[in-house]
């Protein structure tokens, strides 16, 4: 098994890197006890869940098994958890209500998308990546990030953004979802077991920016100081 893992890491270093890099922000949150803050607690849960899913997918990929099912199931969970962080950062109740409504609608839509893309759910060998959900998730997340940035610029509440953890976390998400936005629809055709479409190195872009986003999360968490953050 270890040989398979090593071989996969050597063959796919760009895809393997973010799997293990998940541990960096997780350990930082743990060490800084940032989980005491609600927003960081959600990030902590998200990262642990992501690490678990990534590990399972890594294990299946190293054994040359189809792991797309886990990716598809992870999409609605990932959206709810990542956007939940914004729930605590948005200033207006109306915006929070829209955010909560988006959870319900998105979960329903992605469930439909999984079923629509894979009519025979039992066939795990030919399970395909969702067609619209990832793009919609990217669009929604980009919208919440831009809204948060707009609120931040308007309110002028944060004197120095470079020392504000959530700014780094937002920047990480912004880069990740920007890299995913146009590639996500093509991944549906590229991630098939049979008759797949070769998109070459484009396939690696989301993984590379996933690594970048994890590094930005880590920088943000490193800025966290329990006493001053709440103020």
């Amino acid at each position: 098994m270890l040989e398979n893992y090593c071989s996969y890491i050597i063959r796919q270093p760009v895809i393997s890197a973010p799997v293990f890099l998940n541990l960096l922000p997780i350990l930082l949150i743990w060490r800084k006890r940032a989980y005491n803050d609600k927003m960081f607690f959600i990030l902590f849960v998200y990262l642990i869940l992501k690490f678990g899913v990534d590990l399972v997918m890594f294990d299946l990929a190293s054994q040359r098994k189809n792991s797309v099912l886990y990716y598809n199931l992870n999409i609605p969970v990932r959206y709810v958890l990542t956007s939940w962080m914004f729930y605590y950062k948005l200033d207006y109740n109306a915006q929070r209500k829209w955010l909560m409504l988006s959870w319900i609608l998105f979960v329903a839509f992605s469930a439909w998308d999984i079923i629509h893309t894979n009519p025979s759910m039992g066939d795990l060998y030919n399970h395909k990546m969702v067609l619209y959900s990832t793009t919609l998730e990217s669009l929604l997340m980009l919208f919440w990030i831009m809204l948060y940035f707009y609120n931040t610029m308007r309110a002028l509440k944060i004197p120095n953004l470079l020392t504000y953890p959530f700014f780094w976390i937002c920047s990480g998400f912004l880069l990740y979802y920007s890299s995913l936005l146009f590639i996500a629809p093509v991944l549906h055709y590229a991630s098939k077991w049979d008759q797949w479409m070769d998109i070459g190195s484009l396939d690696y872009i989301p993984y590379a920016f996933e690594t970048v986003s994890l590094l930005l999360f880590s920088i943000g968490i490193a800025q966290y100081t329990g006493s001053s953050y709440a103020k």
């Binding site: 831009m146 912004l174 880069l175 920007s178 890299s179 146009f182 590639i183 093509v186 920016f209």
Partner: peptide, 16 residues
């Protein structure tokens, strides 16, 4: 796709 992704990423950098 490459051009669109690069443009999107540049926009993201610009926004930050």
């Amino acid at each position: 796709l490459l051009i669109a992704s690069i443009a999107m990423l540049m926009m993201a950098f610009f926004v930050i």
